[in-house]
Design a binder for these strands. Sequence first.
DNA 1: ACAATGACATAAG
DNA 2: GCTTATGCCATTG
Length: 131
Amino acid sequence: MGDYPVIGFFEQVYRLVCQVPPGKATSYGAIARMLGHSHAARTVGWALHSLPPDRYVPWHRVVNSQGRVSTNCLEHGGGLQQKLLEQEGVEFQPDGRIDWDRFAWPGLPWPEVEALLRDAISEEVTGSPGE
DNA sequence: ACAATGACATAAG
DNA sequence: GCTTATGCCATTG
């Protein structure tokens, strides 16, 4: 316990992405920015790529800044991500892009994010959810 | 500690 | 609008 009990960046990403409500979408860069790393968009994408299947995280609600699906991992069945989003009511333009003006997740203010991370750290330390 | 990786973002041609 | 090149950052071998 010498080092600060800061949870891994991946974990932070998972926590935050779980806050994205159905029918809304955000970008990797936005997630990174909310976590205080405005230039860690790639890491965010990698975090979702490494996301274990056991854990449910609405990874499909995260697309690139152009509002387009970036998943090159077509092994998931091609337009799986777009399909999941459409099932939630997110509409794709003919260009294959999402209209941010309509489906962009406003995100959480820093205090909310901070509280979220603090709660996650508490779970890591105490081993119990919410205290 | 170094090199490589990756589901990004942005600028330039 | 599309392709190419460069920057940025946390994680992993």
